[in-house]
């Protein structure tokens, strides 16, 4: 069943559609959340469940062609909300063990202007940015994927953050 058919099924057979949505996208939502909330199973499950509920509530507005992107972005935002609370209580670690990264993640709004900027970046910088700040992959994981050193990935992220804070309204 395609994502388009699954979204359509939310209206006609919502219970069955919810079960299938959960089977299809709960693992992805959980994986995203777990990167920011390590060892907090209940919080991760709640983020995953809230992500599925968000699909249900926004079914009319979601473009089925980018449903996976909706799941990633929604799970990411919900995980950050939870992480923000737990950070104040020092119950979760810094994002990728980096204070500047954590600060950027917590404060940066995913505005349209930022998306436009990301599109202008030469590859693989745009993807590096998206993988780190949307998919919440660590610099080490990204380095492995692109055949770079971890230091090189961190360097690119640092330069992008600097540019954004100066040139792009956030």
């Amino acid at each position: 069943m395609t994502d388009r058919e699954l979204i359509a099924k939310l209206k006609t057979q919502p219970n069955t559609a919810l079960v299938e949505l959960t089977e299809r996208y709960a693992p992805l939502a959980s994986a995203i959340a777990a990167r920011l909330l390590p060892g907090r199973g209940a919080d991760v499950e709640e983020v995953a469940a809230d992500t599925i509920i968000a699909i249900w509530k926004n079914g009319d507005k979601i473009d089925p062609e980018t449903l996976r992107g909706f799941v990633i972005t929604t799970a990411r935002n919900l995980a950050i909300d939870r992480w923000r609370v737990l950070r104040r209580r020092e119950e979760v670690p810094l994002f990728d063990h980096d204070g500047a990264d954590s600060d950027f993640l917590e404060r940066t709004v995913l505005a349209g202007a930022l998306a436009e900027y990301i599109r202008t970046l030469s590859p693989p910088d745009g993807e590096i940015f998206l993988r780190h700040y949307l998919l919440l992959e660590t610099a080490a994981e990204i380095a492995l994927r692109y055949g770079l050193t971890e230091a090189a990935v961190r360097g690119r992220l640092h330069r992008m953050r600097k540019f954004l804070q100066k040139e792009v309204p956030l």
Binding site: P27, A31, D63, E65, T66, F70, E127, L130, L134
Partner: peptide, 17 residues
Amino acid sequence: KDWYALVNDLETTVPPL
């Protein structure tokens, strides 16, 4: 919606539940 399109096709590691 811009972000959904940007990340939609990015493959990532998803451990099974």
